[in-house]
């Protein structure tokens, strides 16, 4: 009988000791926030466009951390989706958006038609539109994420989304090889 009591007391003490240890560790090494959210957010393109149905990239990252589908980010494209799939340990899924929505675009204000209502300025999530009341507005192209949010509020429909022009800086090589044929020099020259 005494053996049983000793065993119970011993186990109880052990349980208490480990409980205290775990409790201390939980406090000491507490992780602030969910790092997976930050990681997911880092992968998202930060256009803040809301095409995923969330009011920004951070909320979508939080939703992904809570089990939301990873294929709802058209600006990020397939590459982002795949990275998210890898991060979350789920299978890649085809994007919900079609291909043409993934072309990088920037907003352009037809300035002659702008009435200076500032509605687009209020809509822009990254403060990329310059202007003030009753003054013409214009888009700072370098800051525009192409999120499309300014098009809807415009009362005179003077905002176009135009694809980003290809320049020498952002031009991508295509597979156009320059083949070299190994001809014998003496035969030709």
């Amino acid at each position: 009988m005494s053996q049983v009591i000793i065993a119970i007391i011993l186990l109880g003490l052990l349980a208490l000791a480990f409980g205290a240890l775990l409790g201390y560790a939980a406090e000491k090494f507490k992780v602030e926030g969910d790092p997976i959210i930050d990681q997911a957010e880092a992968l998202l393109p930060q256009t803040q466009c809301g095409q995923c149905g969330y009011p920004g990239c951070r909320p979508y990252a939080e939703a992904i951390a809570n089990g939301e589908k990873i294929n709802k980010c058209p600006p990020g494209g397939t590459a982002t989706m795949e990275k998210l799939a890898e991060l979350m340990g789920v299978d890649p899924e085809p994007l919900t958006a079609s291909a043409e929505t993934q072309v990088k675009k920037v907003a352009f204000i037809r300035e002659a038609e702008c009435i200076g209502c500032t509605k687009c300025i209020q809509a822009c999530p990254v403060d990329a539109i310059l202007g003030t009341g009753k003054q013409m507005h214009t888009v700072i192209t370098d800051y525009c994420t192409g999120c499309d949010l300014c098009v809807e509020p415009c009362p005179v429909d003077c905002i176009d989304m135009i694809p980003v022009a290809e320049t020498l800086q952002n031009w991508s090589w295509q597979l156009n090889a320059i083949p070299v044929v190994n001809i014998s020099e003496e035969s030709k020259c």
Binding site: Q46, P125, D127, Y143, T145, W171, W173, Q174
Partner: peptide
Amino acid sequence: VAKSALRQEAEEKKQAELAKQRFDSR
């Protein structure tokens, strides 16, 4: 092709960072 894709990716990353910064400050 791969190099320009990487360059573009880096550029996009930079853009995303800038956008995030601007979004946060806004």
